[in-house]
Design a protein around this nucleic acid. Structure first.
Length: 731
DNA sequence: AGCACGCCGACT
DNA sequence: GTCGGCGTGCTC
């Protein structure tokens, strides 16, 4: 083994580097006891201070360590090794994000119970013997098992409609022989030829380009196509091709817990659902998927951003659906953008990456324009579906009734839609009843004690909630400041308040509010979405979660309650976001070929973003946004990093941010802005200041930031510094 | 990231 | 007199 010091044979043990889940800059060194095999990539258990942790045997030289500190590896797990390309990927992510490699490696070890093979389960098969005393329950069990197949104890009992003790009784009398059933695959293997799709000419051309027209497929492709143009069907053909080659596929989705529609589409094409990977997965399932990604038993995983760190044995394709989505950006511990890291993962593994979106990020659009990515466009909606007609409602000319938020024009359109038995969707990206509550007598505003944000009233739960830290308190009746009763007013609308207004206008309509805090969680949400698709609801009022990939065939009206909401701050990215979100939401309508309309309520109808959406002149919007980015040298024409300094004490945070700024080395191509109070100046009781590092496309921004951190005094007390390479916000 | 060690306030 | 707060430092 090249990583152990080459010493004379015989007496000494090998020493290997092990990446432990700590924020240290290097792998630690451990001795390999006689008889253990610890090649690079092996998952091992090692002593670390007072505890035992799992780590990955790393590559390269071990660093010099006091022999007295050296401790032996406790155990080598019976697990396929973390592949070399995965280890290089983890190294790369650590270097790029300026995160300790141990913390990045930790993300690949998120299923500790899966490091050992699952124990085979006990299976029962009917033997020759019969019980001495036969009962009705026993008869049912035996009849059920007469097929000669193997059953599990509980499975058989359930199938026969008896309790497990009946089966146990028979087991004791040797009516069954026990066999060991090896762990079953979490999902069957998808069949690439299960149901070949009928593709339009456009789609077929797109598939040919994606697969490389007989040659090598492009390293990165951007599929840019309007909602309903069939992007998914197109990239499914690349999935099929990769499966045929015997390699694994990863499909990244934003908020996967909510996109059951996607899973069903996959099943229709491949005969079974893909394995899922996301935070709400049951622990047992999580272990299985992790393990079977490592053994190669799972062929296709559809997952949230963290699935990028699954230990695939033989990954051959990665797809990022809705690649523009902000949910791909992780902003805790290790800050990374899963879309960008997916491209890197593919590059290191030597396989293709596919990005797909109806409203690509400016970054991807620029890469496709420049030829860096294959630019694959699907301009038409598939199967006769038409994009909705979009119209603006100028709220200055058609104001809502006093105390309301829906203009007469929108209400009129809703009335017509409901009367014709079709569905209407009202979109407002704000949870709860009202974003601010104040006292009419003394002006007191209800604020979060730990964050710089107002408390949002949730009338249904009779609570005031902070949407940043989860703080909540019962909705008060009296003002805590002046004690006055019944003079608290709700300011501004949330979805609950819109629902109230809708109810007053349409008392007989079946309405539903969909937001991420809905009682009943993901399960309930999936049920409600199905109910909507079946036409059991007339009016849907939802936050951005309704924008994502659901298919509502009866939806012929989409009303945007507040089109200007995302444009409030001047961040260049806000315009892009609003464009993407509103395009996505209005795309929910008209997917079945019915004539449909989208109505956008706005107070600034002339705003370029609003204009771009209604006019349908997408290209002009992108052209303008790209030109603006280029002028300002913003990404992707320049590079940025944000340093977030936080501390329990405001003064400590600010003064440390200043000292960081002072430690910034001089550079011709890089400038440092700030410190300024972060957009959310106080979160969970910690005050935050932000520095922005802005460089050119060629700047080594990581090296510069690393120099800054090294030159600054070490943070004391509660002060923390977080590094965000490629931040979402440019301000 | 954990976890132990270590030094200053309110209680059985 | 002790229990316990979290600041500081270490883990091959």
């Amino acid at each position: 083994m090249k990583d152990s010091p080459q010493l004379p044979l015989g007496c000494e043990t090998a020493i290997v580097p092990v990446m432990v889940p700590l924020p240290t800059p290097q792998a630690y060194s451990y001795a390999v006891p006689e008889g253990l095999e610890a090649a690079p990539g092996a998952i091992v258990q090692v002593p670390l201070g007072p505890r035992q942790v799992a780590g990955i045997v790393w590559d390269g030289e071990t660093d010099a360590v006091d022999p007295k500190k050296l401790r032996p590896i406790t155990h080598v797990f019976d697990c396929p090794p973390i592949a070399a390309d995965m280890r290089r990927f983890l190294d790369w992510v650590a270097a790029y994000t300026l995160s300790p490699p141990g913390l990045v490696a930790r993300m690949a070890l998120r299923a500790p119970a899966a490091f050992e093979p699952a124990a085979p389960t006990q299976g029962l098969r009917l033997g020759r013997a019969r019980p001495e005393r036969m009962t009705a329950a026993r008869e049912r069990v035996i009849a059920m098992a007469e097929d000669g197949l193997s059953w599990t104890r509980t499975g058989l009992a359930r199938a026969a409609g008896v309790s497990v003790s009946v089966v146990d009784g028979l087991l004791k009398q040797d009516v069954f022989e026990t066999i060991l059933i090896p762990p079953q695959p979490v999902v069957p293997h998808p069949d690439p030829d299960f149901r070949l799709p009928e593709l339009s000419d456009d789609q077929q051309a797109a598939v040919r380009r994606l697969l490389g027209e007989g040659g090598k497929p492009p390293a990165v492709s951007l599929i840019d196509g309007v909602t309903g143009s069939g992007k998914t069907e197109v990239y499914f053909e690349a999935v099929a091709e990769t499966i045929r080659q015997g390699r694994q596929v990863l499909i990244l989705l934003p908020e996967i817990a909510l996109t059951s529609v996607f899973l069903e589409r996959f099943e229709r094409r491949f005969g079974c659902k893909p394995a899922e990977w996301h935070s709400e997965l049951a622990p047992r399932m999580r272990e299985k998927v992790w393990r079977q990604a490592a053994t190669g038993d799972v062929r296709v995983v559809a997952g949230a951003r963290s699935s990028l760190f699954l230990p695939f044995e033989n990954l051959g394709l990665v797809i990022v659906d809705e690649e523009h989505d902000a949910a791909y950006k992780q902003e805790d511990r290790v800050f990374y953008n899963a879309r960008d890291m997916a491209v890197v993962r593919a590059h290191i593994g030597g396989f293709p990456a596919i990005l797909a979106s109806a409203t690509p990020s400016i970054e991807s659009r620029v890469n496709a324009d420049s030829g860096k990515y294959a630019d694959i466009r699907l301009p038409e909606r598939f199967g006769g579906a038409a994009l909705p007609d979009l119209h603006l409602i100028d709220m200055r000319r058609d104001p809502p009734a006093r105390g309301g938020f829906l203009s007469p024009k929108l209400l009129e359109a809703m009335k017509k839609t409901v009367a014709e038995g079709e569905q209407a969707l009202l979109f407002l990206n704000r949870r709860g009843y009202a974003p601010l509550t104040l006292c009419r007598v003394c002006g007191h505003r209800f604020q979060c004690p730990d964050c710089s944000s107002w408390l949002v009233e949730h009338r249904f739960r009779r609570q005031l909630q902070c949407h940043h830290c989860g703080h909540n308190e019962p909705a008060p009746e009296a003002c805590p400041e002046c004690g006055t009763l019944d003079h608290l007013v709700a300011c501004g609308p949330g979805v609950e308040r819109i629902a109230e207004e809708v109810d007053s206008h349409f008392p007989d309509a079946r309405t539903i509010v969909l937001s991420s805090d809905m009682a009943g969680g993901v399960r309930r949400l999936r049920l409600e979405l199905e109910a909507i698709a079946k036409g059991e609801v007339d009016i849907v009022i939802g936050t951005q979660l309704v924008a994502k990939g659901h298919n509502f065939p009866m939806m012929t009206l989409v009303g945007i309650v507040d089109s200007d909401l995302g444009l409030a701050n001047g961040d260049p990215r806000a315009a892009e976001r609003t464009f993407q979100l509103l395009s996505q939401v209005t795309g929910r309508a008209g997917r079945s070929g019915r004539k449909s309309i989208g109505l956008l309520q706005t107070y600034q109808p002339a705003h370029p973003v609003i204009q771009a959406i209604v006019s349908g002149d997408r290209d002009a919007f992108y052209e303008r946004e790209i030109a603006e980015r280029e002028n300002a040298r913003l990404p992707p024409f320049g590079r940025m990093a944000a340093l977030i300094v936080s501390a329990a004490d405001r003064v400590a945070a600010e003064s440390y941010a200043r000292s960081l700024r002072q430690a910034a080395p001089g550079a011709r191509d890089i400038s440092v802005l700030g410190p300024a109070e972060a957009p959310m100046a106080l979160i969970r009781g910690r005050y935050r200041f932000r520095l922005l590092v802005h460089g050119t496309k060629q700047s080594d921004i990581q090296a510069y930031v690393a120099q800054m951190i090294a030159a600054a005094p070490g943070p004391r007390g509660s002060v923390r510094v977080q590094i965000d390479i490629d931040p979402q916000s440019f301000m």
